[in-house]
Design a protein around this nucleic acid. Structure first.
Lengths: 260, 260
DNA sequence: TCCTGCTTGTTCGCATTGCGAACATTGAAT
DNA sequence: ATTCAATGTTCGCAATGCGAACAAGCAGGA
C-alpha cells in the first residue's frame, strides 16, 4: 500500500518520528475559525484516521495542552509554552524590543520586527501606538512576505539561489488592487530594495497602510530580521518616511548588527 | 522491567502516544538560557536517551520546527504556530485587546489580560505604555499566580475544591520582602478579594509595582480571565487605583461577560 | 605521536507501540 | 420502529521507534 512512496524515504527515515508530526498537526488544526473541534473534525482536518486523532487528542489532554468537555476538544494556554520557548530562546524578541519602543516613541507610529518563515513573515516583536491598524497583529502573526515591506527587506538580501527558488514558487496573490502580482515587476521592486537598502510598500497589503522596512544585517552577513515603521498612508507621505523614519530605522539596524 | 509501574497505566494508556509527549518535551527544552542545544544536551534536559533525542530533533528539523548547524539545534519561528494556534483559536486575545487599549489610553497606564495555567498566570493580551516595567513581559509570559493581582483575581473565584487543592500544593515563594508567604494570610487576602470583587497587590511581585485586577465572570459563571492595570507604586496610590481605575476595569469586565 | 578515557553521535535487531479495520453507539431522518 | 450515516472505541498485529552496543571525535598525559 505505501511501498512505492516509502521506498525512497524509508531508508533515510529510520529516524523520523511520525507520531510527533501527527501530534503537531493536530495542534495546528485548531485556529481562529475552529477553536473547538470534535475528534472527527480533527481527523478530517489533519487527514489522519479517527482512531489516531483520538489518541493524539487524549494524549494532549493528559498532558494539559488540550481539554475536553465531553464532546469537543480545545487547546489550553499551556501550548503557549511551545511557541514561547522560541521567543525567549531566541530572545531576539527581547533584544529588539527596546529599539522598537524608542522608534515608536520618537515617531508616534507603530514599529515591528519580523523574521522569515517559509514564504511568510512572522512578527517577533512590536511596539504599537494605540488605535491604529488591525488589532490581532501581535507577536506570532503571519503575513505573506511578498506584499509587506518587512518581507521584501528580508527577501531582497537572501542568497541568490534561495531568492530564485522563492521567486519560482511564490504566488503573488493580490491583497489590494495595488499589490504587485507580476513577477518581473516584483523582481524589479526587490532589486530597487537591494540597491537602496530599504523597502517601502504602499497599500499593497492593506488599503490605507504604508510601511517602510530595513534589513538587519548580521555579523555573518546574513539577513534574517527586518525592522519597520508603518503608518496611515493619508497621514504620512512616502517621502516623509524616507526623510524622518529611515535614519531611525537604519541606526537601530546598525546597532543590532553588533548585538546579534 | 516496567511491569509494576505500567500495570495501572497500561490498560488506560493504550491510547497515550508517548512519542508526542517526548517530542513536546524536546521543544520545551529550549528556553531563554538555552537557545542552542546539542543532541546530548537535549537528552540530558529531557531525560530521554540520546538515540531518542536524535530522532525527535531530526523530525523537528525535517518539519522545519528546528534547524541544525552541524553541531547545535535551535528552534525556528515555525514553533510560534503552535502557541499561536491557541491565541487565535481562543481568540480571547483579539476580543479582549480593544478593551485593554481603551483602558490604557484613558489612564496612561499598562493594562493586561491573563488566564490561569496550572499555578501560573499567562498573559493573553497587553496594552503597555512605553518605558515603564520590565520589557519581556509580553503575551505568553508567565508569572506565579499567588503574588500577582491577575492571579488572585482568578484564584479567588475558582470552585472551592479546586482552590483548596491549589492552596495545599502551592509554595508561596517570596519575590520581594512584601510577598505574602504565610498560607493563612494568603487565604485572608483571597477572601478579601472575593468579598470586594477585585484584587490589589502592592509590590509583592516586583519592587515599585502596584497592580489592581478584576475577574471576568463568564456566562456560565466561571472565571478564567482577569484584567488588570498596573503602575509605578510611587506615582499612583492604592486609593487612587480603586477610585479611578476600578470603574474602568469593572465596566470592561462586565461587557466582556456578554461577549465571551 | 600514540595511547587512554570520556563524551558525543549513529546503527540495527527486536519488543512495543501505535495502527486502523472492524465493531459499537449515537442520533437524525423517514 | 427501522434505516442509514456519522461518531467514537476496541484489539490483533505489523511496523515503528527503542536503546544497548558500536563508532567516531577529542582532550589530556606521557
Amino acid at each position: 500500500m505505501q511501498n512505492e512512496l516509502t521506498l525512497d524515504q524509508r531508508s533515510a527515515d529510520r529516524d523520523f518520528v511520525a507520531s510527533l508530526e501527527k501530534g503537531l498537526s493536530v495542534i495546528e488544526a485548531f485556529d481562529a475559525s475552529r477553536p473547538r473541534l470534535s475528534l472527527s473534525d480533527v481527523a478530517k482536518l489533519t487527514g489522519i484516521t479517527r482512531a489516531a486523532a483520538r489518541r493524539y487528542l487524549l494524549t494532549l489532554t493528559k498532558l494539559n495542552y488540550a481539554e475536553f468537555d465531553g464532546r469537543y476538544f480545545s487547546l489550553t494556554p499551556r501550548v503557549l509554552r511551545l511557541g514561547y520557548a522560541y521567543l525567549s530562546s531566541a530572545s531576539l524578541s527581547a533584544q529588539v524590543q527596546p529599539f522598537l519602543e524608542r522608534i515608536s516613541e520618537e515617531t508616534g507610529e507603530s514599529s515591528s520586527a519580523a523574521v522569515l518563515d517559509g514564504d511568510d513573515i512572522v512578527y517577533i516583536a512590536r511596539s504599537a501606538t494605540r488605535r491604529i491598524m488591525s488589532i490581532g497583529l501581535g507577536v506570532g502573526s503571519r503575513l505573506p512576505a511578498h506584499c509587506t515591506a518587512l518581507g521584501r527587506a528580508i527577501l531582497a538580501f537572501q542568497p541568490e539561489d534561495e531568492f530564485r527558488a522563492y521567486l519560482q514558487r511564490v504566488r503573488l496573490e493580490a491583497r489590494t488592487p495595488k499589490t504587485i502580482t507580476d513577477k518581473s515587476a516584483f523582481q524589479d521592486a526587490l532589486e530597487a530594495t537591494r540597491a537602496q537598502g530599504y523597502a517601502i510598500v504602499n497599500e499593497e497589503l492593506e488599503y490605507g497602510l504604508r510601511s517602510i522596512a530595513v534589513p538587519v544585517v548580521q555579523k555573518n552577513g546574513k539577513v534574517t530580521i527586518a525592522l519597520n515603521l508603518s503608518a496611515q498612508a493619508g497621514r504620512v507621505s512616502a517621502e516623509e518616511m524616507e526623510r524622518r523614519f529611515l535614519p531611525l530605522l537604519n541606526s537601530a539596524s546598525e546597532t543590532l548588527r553588533y548585538m546579534l
